[in-house]
Design a protein around this nucleic acid. Structure first.
Lengths: 228, 228
DNA sequence: CCCTTTTTCGTCGTCTCGACGATAACCTCT
DNA sequence: AGAGGTTATCGTCGAGACGACGAAAAAGGG
């Protein structure tokens, strides 16, 4: 190993959630150089004996303060431009996490100042390193995955209504969907959701049936987002 | 940088092509330990000042002997289990390449023994390191991408017929497709292919129109593979 | 000239989707 | 209690896409 170029390897997390009908991204304010004081993706160095998914889960639980990641976590991509980190050659493995809106406040161990930021309020050049591009890739991946997977339910609590699921699609895609056609599509696609048997109470309007995530891993046929 | 765990970073390539109505994978026989003499994915270490896509393109051109990668190259995923390489902590960034059938023989600089192997002849445990899993992920990615992108044309020469494109789908998916419906779908999807104006000569049957790749980057609606 | 092969164009029933009407089942306010 | 508002759920209808298949066009080989 002595004659191979030495790299540092990190994980960075694009953590998304839907709250108040807006798509939010988890950011931390950097407490150490470089880019001290700027907003960045949560992440950190991978341990020398640590597997990559383990490192991602560790960072996620540390930053969100949650014992168990209830949503979805998948590898997004690896970014390693030679000049992306002034400290040296750092390659980062980026991960995409989709979480339900957390009742727990965001306060991890080493994230003194972490915050949910609406993605509409992100401006180019705002984030440290190449995190702008990583976020853009994560958003595009999330939007695309809603089309052909049932992953929208990862943004929802264990039991949810069709309207909550529709709100996820509308928020992530930034479009409006017809409630009746959406209901037909969701309940008609086998394995998308399975009825929980119970219904909501106390809200406005007619009570809605509660559903859980179905066993399907893909949507056939896919839920296509409206064009333009 | 001195206090961060040192990693080695490599790139590995899942290079696919279609020849003789079979999907083939490019493999090299390892000339050095570990796993000396076993088949493995082409790849190598990333230079300390080298960008990741550059390293992938470099390895691809070295192994295939082609000056220009005519097909398609995209990042597949990163694999970094702590025990995946006995030499130490090696993280590899895997890439997926789709190439037309090469008239050039496969003979790279440092690949004394490289070969195209039909994917049907791969057996579990045959490849070095964790390359079995990387190949499986690459195959699934390629099969899925044919559904919603026009990437099947990456397996074809610059000018091709509808039947050649259909053969790609049938070979990669391992299914049969109706020639008439496939023709309607391909020529009816805007931007999938654009007519080259010329036609084939000398083959059996009616001459076929030649097409080039169209400007579309996605297929709307997607080309769904038949179920089961 | 007939047969085979392959490409290309049509047809028809089925399925899905978008646009919308209509009804059901709750709430709140008076 | 009843009226009105709000939301969920079910139906209907036409347009478009798809699978299964027939048929014509355009070549080569006997």
């Amino acid at each position: 190993m002595t004659d191979y170029p030495p790299f540092a390897v990190t994980v960075d997390l694009v953590v998304l959630t839907v709250r108040a009908d807006e798509l939010h991204l988890l950011l931390v304010r950097r407490g150490i150089p470089p880019d001290r004081g700027r907003w960045a993706l949560p992440g950190g160095f991978v341990g020398i004996d640590e597997d990559l998914p383990d490192a991602a889960v560790r960072e996620l639980t540390e930053e969100t303060g949650l014992p168990e990641p209830a949503g979805h976590l998948e590898q997004l991509g690896t970014y390693g431009r030679p000049d992306r980190d002034p400290r040296g050659r750092v390659v980062t493995v980026a991960w995409l996490a989709l979480l339900p809106d957390l009742p727990t406040p965001v306060a991890g161990s080493d994230a003194a100042s972490a915050a949910w930021v609406p993605v509409t309020r992100l401006t180019p050049g705002q984030l440290a390193f190449d995190h702008d591009r990583i976020v853009a890739d994560g958003l595009e991946r999330a939007r695309a995955k809603l089309e052909y997977t049932p992953l929208a339910s990862a943004f929802c609590p264990p039991e949810f209504t069709v309207a909550q699921l529709r709100a996820v699609y509308e928020t992530v895609w930034g479009t409006r969907l017809d409630p009746r056609n959406f209901h037909r599509k969701v309940t008609g696609t086998p394995g998308f959701v399975s009825p929980a048997g119970r219904a909501t109470e106390g809200d406005r309007g007619r009570p809605a049936q509660l559903f859980r995530r179905g066993p399907a891993t893909r949507l056939h046929p896919p839920m296509l987002r409206p064009e333009s």
